[in-house]
Amino acid sequence: MWEYTDKVMDHFRNPRNTGVIEDADGTGEVGSMACGDALKLTFKLGGDGRIADAKFQTFGCASAIAAASAMTELIKGKTIAEAEKITNQDVANFLGGLPGEKMHCSVLGEQALEAAIENYRTGKPAGVKEIEGRVVCHCFGVTEKEIEHVVRENHLTTVEEVTNYTKAGGGCGNCLDDIQEILDRIAGEKPKAETKGKTMTNLERIKLIEQVIATTIRPALQADGGDINLVDVDGNRVIVALKGACASCPMATYTMKGFVEAQLRQAVSDELIVEAQ
């Protein structure tokens, strides 16, 4: 049984704003019955340019119903520009959190809102999902662009998380390697942060090293049962301690030079030398 918050159960039992607005200004339809969840979101603007009313219909589990209900509550009273900024994380937060495996329900809400706003702006018929770019997961029809979007917005680092958020990879599993590649690519570009190349104070430099370790290096090592601590930074020498499975791993030297040092050089400075404590 899933651990749903009281708020999820409340919105499942008493969903707000159900139905369809007949003369809606924007209509978004996403998902399908085959995939196990589908959502139709409609909204109507008031004279002040704010969303005066929003309604939904959904085919899905308790959390899909709750997420759709939450989305309608979140967008009411907002301008289109404000509504556009609402993310799936906002929906999940509004509900006091969702089980990891159910995050795709909140993503469906965000996608429905995007589709409804697109429909409002362009007048293109709702419900016709235009495939943009390469389809990665053929079981659930998830594109590379959608995966990238969700990975960036939610700071996802593992394939399992991508499946939880987008369903991609949850069917036959043939695209799991593709998803990993997308994750690797995004992880690789993340720390490039504008900072590299600029003249940094020693403090900025240490902070950046810490940041790269926290966002890129540590999650990768933890995935293999290991961990890493920053011990000291002395000029270009970065002293670290490998922990857990990494400490006794025969590949430790490679991990240190080929991965940790490479990541830090790429993000911070080409002159860095990483050493074990």
Binding site: F12, G36, G60, K102
Partner: peptide, 28 residues
């Protein structure tokens, strides 16, 4: 969808199960 039906019945103390994706923990 099955999970929603099960949770709806659960509110009345009724225990059953479903072949829906959402209850299996998988997506199929």
């Amino acid at each position: 969808e099955g999970e929603a039906i099960l949770l709806g019945m659960n509110e009345h103390g009724i225990c059953a199960s479903s072949g829906s994706a959402c209850t299996s923990g998988s997506l199929e």
